[in-house]
């Protein structure tokens, strides 16, 4: 199997609504390997470089949908999305952010239209 030598650069949006006023973007380098999923990248960052990284997942099988994140701007399931280059990871829009990439699926943000426009 092909192995790319160059590590991939992962830029992660970090934000703790309780403490931070502004989100910040943190960069990590993760060794690249064959068949790497976005979830595996997040798990590696958590286990090896940033134990405080907050992210959510459950089944790893593409079924529960709790691992949705924004990957390079597009909403994707982290567990079934293959990595093919550098990554920018952000929480999905329209849900309350718990911290970093973890959002609360039971708290959708009310859209402007539903509020009657404000």
């Amino acid at each position: 199997m092909s192995r790319t030598a160059r590590p991939i650069t992962v830029t992660v949006r970090r934000f703790d609504p309780g403490h931070d006023t502004q989100p910040r973007y943190e960069r990590f380098e993760v060794p690249s390997s064959h068949g790497l999923s976005v979830l595996q990248v997040m798990a590696q960052i958590y286990e090896q470089s940033s134990p405080s990284l907050a992210f959510m997942y459950s089944c790893r099988l593409g079924k529960c949908t709790s691992c949705h994140v924004r990957v390079n701007g597009k909403v994707r399931l982290a567990c079934s999305t293959i990595v093919d280059g550098d990554l920018v990871l952000e929480p999905v829009p329209h849900y309350a952010v718990i911290r970093d990439l973890a959002v609360d699926w039971s708290r959708p943000l009310v859209s402007r239209r539903e509020k009657g426009g404000a």
Binding site: Y46, P51, S52, A54, F55, M56, R99
Partner: peptide, 8 residues
């Protein structure tokens, strides 16, 4: 030490 969704 963060108490919010601390996986570890």
């Amino acid at each position: 030490p963060n108490r919010v969704y601390n996986r570890e």
